[in-house]
């Protein structure tokens, strides 16, 4: 067992883990952040996508001990808290809702974290950049058309 100190959604946390414990397990089980989903056991689906020091990673394919001292953002930490404008959702979340960019919703947290990463690198992505940027995330409902629509809407909202 080892103690791992990290920052999760802006708050410092310390957890005691087996060396083989995955970051996704810490998030879901130790910290109760169950918005990070586990959709496969093969590192393919991307439902567990979080930001690690600002870059998208699959939290099921990172050991908790590897992220000592690093900063993790999950879907729970994405939306700003209430502000004067009353906004409750991050623009990407808002766009996913408005474009109905989900069917069963299971892949959605990972998709949204991947999209926010994509928009950092490509603030106004074209279709090819969106498709290439979401290659690590699978939607088994195959609802990709509305996801692409939502990415474009989110890009517009974030530019405004």
């Amino acid at each position: 067992m080892s103690k791992v100190a990290l920052t999760v959604n802006g708050k410092p946390v310390e957890v005691e883990v087996e060396h083989r414990t995955l970051l996704s397990t810490v998030l879901r089980e130790a910290l109760g952040l169950t918005g990070t989903h586990i959709g496969c056991d093969t590192s393919q689906c991307g439902a567990c996508t979080v930001h690690l020091d600002g870059r998208v990673v699959k939290s099921c394919t990172v050991l908790a001990v590897q992220v000592q001292g690093q900063s993790v953002k999950t879907i729970e930490g994405l939306a700003p808290s209430f502000d004067a404008s009353g906004a409750r959702l991050h623009p990407v979340q808002q766009a996913f809702s408005e474009c109905h960019a989900l069917q069963c919703g299971f892949c959605t947290p990972g998709m949204i974290m991947a999209v926010t990463g994509l928009l950092q690198d490509h603030p106004q992505p074209d279709d090819q950049q969106i498709i290439h940027g979401l290659e690590g995330n699978l939607c088994r409902c195959t609802g990709y058309v509305n996801i692409i629509k939502a990415v474009k809407q989110a890009a517009q909202m974030m530019q405004a």
């Binding site: 991307g46 998208v56 990673v57 990463g117 690590g136």
Partner: peptide, 9 residues
């Protein structure tokens, strides 16, 4: 290579 999550690691 792979996908963005893979390229980041």
């Amino acid at each position: 290579i792979g996908d963005p999550q893979v390229r980041n690691r």
